[in-house]
Design a protein around this nucleic acid. Sequence first.
DNA 1: TGCTATAGTTACTGACCGGTAACACCCATG
DNA 2: CATGGGTGTTACCGGTCAGTAACTATAGCA
Lengths: 215, 215
Amino acid sequence: MKVEAKTMENAVEVGGAADANPCVSKSRVRDRIFDTACDLFYKQGIRGVGVDAIASEAGTNKMSFYRSFPSKDELVAEYVRDAARQFMAWWDEVVAPYPNDPRRQAEALFEATVNKPIEQCNRGCAMANVMVEIQEEDHAALVVVREHKAEIRQRLRQLAADMGASNPDKLGDSLMLVMGGTFQARMIFPAGNTPVDVAGCAAKVLIEAHLRGAC
Amino acid sequence: MKVEAKTMENAVEVGGAADANPCVSKSRVRDRIFDTACDLFYKQGIRGVGVDAIASEAGTNKMSFYRSFPSKDELVAEYVRDAARQFMAWWDEVVAPYPNDPRRQAEALFEATVNKPIEQCNRGCAMANVMVEIQEEDHAALVVVREHKAEIRQRLRQLAADMGASNPDKLGDSLMLVMGGTFQARMIFPAGNTPVDVAGCAAKVLIEAHLRGAC
DNA sequence: TGCTATAGTTACTGACCGGTAACACCCATG
DNA sequence: CATGGGTGTTACCGGTCAGTAACTATAGCA
């Protein structure tokens, strides 16, 4: 199967029709490897995917991998950085339609979480999964994960403060719990009719209660 | 990780009559191995712990391991079963002081989750971690995890129904999200002052609001 | 044409890991 | 004392995996 992919790519490149195949032939080897790795890491776990598998799935081989990345660990760290960037970009995008309306922004975030396409998150939170799989406490990837989660917590607390909650840290942290639980539930209950569906409702209830002065 | 010729029961019964001599001295090694394995699996992950490490940490060796367990996979499944049993026992214990008071029971569960000793859960939810680490969809351990999570969901929904919530499934699932998020947060923010602290409060707010008729 | 950067191929090392074989030892029971 | 079950010990097999070496092929550019 990998041989077919390689030969096809070569044929396309030789043919020169570059724009017709944006996903494989035109991109640099490094980018192909990286995209493939991100996909496989999320779907099969860090430890469940070897360098050989990544390379051949990307239509190349291990040597080209090591010409682009100094080690698998470094690739993992890059994967986590990219996941963090993507999550924040998603956040900003979801929030953008409601400027100066922090309550609506928070609600939109949880609704968007519920409605995320299944294949994008049926393995739960990529960052949390990395923390489960990596044991070395000082691994570069874990530093990124901790920073990322701390920033999400901070953002939720800020949203709570901006919407005038009487105890913004408590509301923000409560929302943090719901968000984390939602991602976890997407992994554990992958099919329809799961606890995931109530995430938006739970967030609304928490916000409503806190704005009423609960806690 | 794939040999499955023998079964757990066979391995246990190899010692002889299963009922005549209830395994005090005979299965001491087995118990030591199992306890050690549970500890290491939780702290370092399934894939992060080898059979050699388990055996030597238990003061024995690999051969004795394979005299007690047919395979590492089977041990993992047993580990998950034990974790599920322990969790349910903990649940029943926490709930026991408040018979016929489902609301108080639910609140007690979340308070107890917050107050669990750190070293018992600073790696988050053992069941969820197993689901992250194991890729084989039909692995025996994963079946146990799914059943366990489904039962917790059912229990929370039942509690919500018993306390008279207008929409018990929504309340139960909301609590499920908070509970999952709490365990995840214990792994991600291991030190003091974390979102974990608000889990009891979040649960109370959700219950209160639902009993008032929200959603 | 020839140089250089990029990429493919094959083969290898060393470590680790799950699992097994064969044998030696200890000790309780008969 | 003899037997046998549980245990310890050593060595090994087959597989996987991260990482490297050395060579080849190609494509663009001067």
